[in-house]
């Protein structure tokens, strides 16, 4: 059979455009022909994968976002050797240009150091209010909560973050788990992982940790050097709300 005819036959079969007789004959041929089965599968997968203009539009948006999106600096491990690609080189060039312009205004070393010290002075992990449950088996929710609370109480924040994240994933209705997961990430030195969780907590607005989440999100931004966003949140903290004095102190630095 000529190749165009074979393609035509496969396409008509996949689109259910054959007569019953043609279909029976094709299925019979298919049952004893491994190469034809492979060919049919490839045609079917190509059609399924590539069909629709919208998926191609989405891929273009994904490509563009991926090209311009940069991983937050704090997400890189300490001392890790990272290869530099074109994306990083362009990003570094742009950042350097910005630094040259704004050095005197914003980035004097003494000022950065002041800000880091201010973060260190203001940040403290939220007290543990969850009950310490019995249980050794971390495949159960009770055991996992025990592990999470233990790790948090003994300042093993990386382990606490992992355990609380799993709890938060399994019980999205319990905002406390997400809150402690985020505080643990911040305490473990990962503000970029903490910030999305605090943002999510602020969007829920139906739990006990709203005010605290605003405060910690401000600290997460601060730690990442996103001072404008941090200050905007700090200004939202009103007299009588948790951390008002501390927020004023940071704004008046």
């Amino acid at each position: 059979m000529e190749q165009p005819d074979k393609y035509d036959q496969i396409e008509r079969f996949l689109r259910d455009e054959m007569t019953p007789e043609e279909r029976r004959a094709f299925e019979q041929q298919l049952s004893g022909d491994r190469a034809l089965q492979d060919e049919l599968r490839l045609h079917a997968e190509l059609a399924e994968t590539l069909q629709g203009e919208q998926v191609h539009r989405l891929r273009a948006v994904l490509k563009e976002t991926d090209r311009t999106w940069q991983r937050p600096d704090d997400a890189r491990g300490p001392g890790k050797v990272v290869g530099i690609g074109l994306r990083q080189i362009l990003a570094i060039a742009a950042t350097l240009a910005l630094l040259v312009v704004s050095w005197q205004l914003f980035f004097r070393p003494d000022r950065i150091s002041d800000r880091e010290q201010l973060f260190a002075a203001q940040f403290e992990p939220y007290p543990m209010v969850l009950a310490q449950r019995d249980g050794q088996d971390s495949s159960t929710a009770e055991g996992l909560q025990a592990k999470a609370v233990n790790a948090y109480s003994s300042a093993d924040y990386a382990a606490a973050a992992e355990a609380f994240t799993r709890l938060a994933d399994s019980r999205p209705d319990q905002s406390a788990y997400l809150f402690y997961a985020a505080v643990s990430e911040l305490a473990a030195g990962h503000p970029e992982l903490a910030a999305p969780s605090f943002r999510e907590l602020l969007s829920r607005e139906d739990h006990l940790f709203v005010e605290q989440s605003r405060w910690y999100l401000a600290l997460a931004y601060w730690k990442q050097g996103e001072y404008e966003q941090a200050e905007e949140l700090l200004r939202q903290i009103q007299p009588g709300q948790a951390k008002y004095e501390e927020a004023r102190e940071m704004l008046d630095r």
């Binding site: 919208q54 539009r57 989405l58 273009a60 948006v61 994904l62 563009e64 976002t65 991926d66 999106w69 991983r71 937050p72 997400a75 990962h190 970029e192 992982l193 999305p196 943002r199 999510e200």
Partner: peptide
């Protein structure tokens, strides 16, 4: 809808944890 702002937020909110 392949909305760039939504894709950007997905990147900001989720990708750091995936990379980690």
């Amino acid at each position: 809808e392949a909305r760039p702002s939504a894709v950007r937020r997905l990147y900001d909110d989720i990708l750091p944890a995936v990379i980690y």
